[in-house]
Design a protein around this nucleic acid. Sequence first.
DNA 1: AACGCATAAGTAAGAC
DNA 2: GTCTTACTTATGCGTT
Lengths: 87, 87, 87, 87
Amino acid sequence: MANAENPRAVPGDNKQLLAFVERIERMEEEKAGVQADIKEIYAEAKGNGFNTKVLKKLIAIKKQDADKRAEEEALLELYAKAAGVFL
Amino acid sequence: MANAENPRAVPGDNKQLLAFVERIERMEEEKAGVQADIKEIYAEAKGNGFNTKVLKKLIAIKKQDADKRAEEEALLELYAKAAGVFL
Amino acid sequence: MANAENPRAVPGDNKQLLAFVERIERMEEEKAGVQADIKEIYAEAKGNGFNTKVLKKLIAIKKQDADKRAEEEALLELYAKAAGVFL
Amino acid sequence: MANAENPRAVPGDNKQLLAFVERIERMEEEKAGVQADIKEIYAEAKGNGFNTKVLKKLIAIKKQDADKRAEEEALLELYAKAAGVFL
DNA sequence: AACGCATAAGTAAGAC
DNA sequence: GTCTTACTTATGCGTT
């Protein structure tokens, strides 16, 4: 039923599928690497006497700030659009 | 209590703290970028007729520990039987 | 564009708008309360020796449409075979 | 291995399990009901000429506000604790 | 009716 | 070892 218009997408043995799987796995490895780096930085901060938990909260707040700002801008745009005003 | 050995590591005006915050934020942006790339690949796969949900599950299974999975499935069967649920 | 038929429905000082906002917020609180209750029941089950994770899965399966599930599993098998992954 | 201390929790046929399942399912129905109510309110608002999307964003922002406040308080407590100060 | 977004569920890691 | 918190995945909702 699914994908009736593209016979390749219901593979019996499919290079395309493998290619996608590999690309994704590669990117996920990269992501895991970045994660590990972040972890290391926290460890380093801890080694320099900082309280990791506090540091994390601090960063979380900064992020929340940014998110909130973005949301507000989105709302403003929405209002403007609803009112037919150009920004 | 914390950080008795390093009096500099207190909140307040602190270059070191700022440096750590910035480094972490930079890495988190990078991570977000990689995430976005992954999302794109899935979109591309979808555009080629693949079922994204299934593709994700496949990749998850590849990296999942087989033994743990088997154990949980066995317990689930047990519960299901006890609750009169057909799997 | 929007709301041409009801001039009152514009942002700004608007009792009606506030009323809607409050009603929704009230309901969302209620929802959060129910959520909390569910969480408690799981805790209680856990206290009685049940595996929460498996219990959740059981309940999820009960409400999932059987046909849809079967379809997805079939597709997953297909992909797995094509990708050379053992299930 | 699991739950060795409570033989009832690995049931062959178990009233207790069924009771938990039913309680949870009941609560989830209730939750779904509340969800439906919320949906209805949005529909009503729309019927009164309000832009649903804008309304949602507005509520989201109010919630973010509250969350942010809570986070800030948590951070403050953390600082106070780290500094050995009583609030 | 398909797409993308937003919330909610489920899973896994980290702190105490 | 438990318990909370963060991240990932999944579902549902509204839109085009």
